[in-house]
Design a binder for these strands. Structure first.
Lengths: 127, 127
DNA sequence: GTAGGAGCTGGAGTGCACTCCAGGTCAACC
DNA sequence: GGTTGACCTGGAGTGCACTCCAGCTCCTAC
C-alpha cells in the first residue's frame, strides 16, 4: 500500500508542510516518488511517522529524534544505543507525568477551595 | 517578609529575567520597590508566582495566564469566570496526562520487544 | 486543449517564551 | 573615594518547531 502526502498527513496527524519539513531536516528518509515526481509513502514510512509523533507528543526534542533516526539508519549495530535512548526517554516521560499529576493536585485543591482561597488573596492575608 | 528579585527567582524557580518579563507583559503586578528603587517581593507576590509556575508547568499559554491575572485584578466579581478557567484547564491537564500515558505504553511495548521490532524494521516486513 | 487541483521547490515568515545585552544607578565595603 | 556586585531600563536576539508563500509542474476531467 502506498500513500500520497495528503494521505500520509491525515494518517500520521502531521501537516503536509511538516512532513516535507521532517524530510528536509533528515528526520524521515525521502520516500519513493511516483511517475510524476510526487512523494509516495509506504506502510513502513507511515509506521515510522506514527512512531515519531509518539516521540514528539511525549516531548522529545527534534534534535534527539534526529539522532535516533540516524542511529536507526546505521542498522542493527546501534540497536543498544537506541534502546538506551528510549529507556531514558521513558524515564523523562514518567517524570513529566508525575510533575503534571502533582500540579493537578494543586489545581484540584484550588478549585475545591476556590471561594476561601481567592477571598484570602483579595484580603491579602495569604498564609 | 520581603524578597529581592534574586530570592524571588530562587523560590519561584523562574529566572530573574523571566520575573521582569512577566511583569512587563502584565502577568504579575509590579512589586513594591525598596529605597534604592529595587524590586521587593512580598509573600503574596511569591504565592502568585508559584501558582503561575504551576499553570505554566501544566502548559497553560501565557496569553491565558494573562487573562486569568486580569480577571483576578478585577476582584471577587470575576471569581466564577476564573474558577471556570481552572476547571477547563484541569480537564486539559487530565487529557494531556492520558495522552502521555498512552504514548508511554507504546514506548514500554517498543522497549520490551525492541529486538524483534527493530529486526522487522530492518527487514522491512513491518505488519 | 484548457481549467483545476494536488503536489513540487527553496526560502522567508511566524508565534511562543524567554534570554541576553549595553549602559547606567545605587549601597556597601576596603 | 574607588571598586565591586546586585539591580535597573529599553530593546534586541535566540531557539524551537513549524507554517506560509511564489512560482512552477503534472495529471485528470471536461
Amino acid at each position: 500500500m502506498t500513500y500520497s502526502i495528503a494521505q500520509a498527513a491525515e494518517r500520521s496527524g502531521l501537516s503536509i508542510d511538516t512532513l516535507r519539513y521532517y524530510e528536509r531536516i533528515g528526520l524521515v528518509d525521502p520516500p519513493a516518488r511516483d511517475s510524476g515526481g510526487r512523494r509516495s509513502y509506504s506502510d513502513d514510512d507511515l509506521g515510522w511517522l506514527v512512531f515519531l509523533t509518539r516521540l514528539r507528543t511525549t516531548g522529545m526534542p527534534i534534535r534527539m529524534m534526529r539522532e535516533y533516526a540516524q542511529l536507526r539508519h546505521r542498522g542493527a549495530a546501534t540497536a543498544g544505543r537506541r534502546k538506551q535512548m528510549l529507556f531514558e526517554h521513558r524515564a523523562s516521560v514518567r517524570e513529566r507525568i508525575a510533575e503534571l499529576q502533582s500540579c493537578l493536585e494543586v489545581l484540584e485543591y484550588k478549585i475545591t477551595h476556590y471561594e476561601q482561597i481567592e477571598h484570602t488573596f483579595i484580603e491579602g492575608v495569604t498564609a
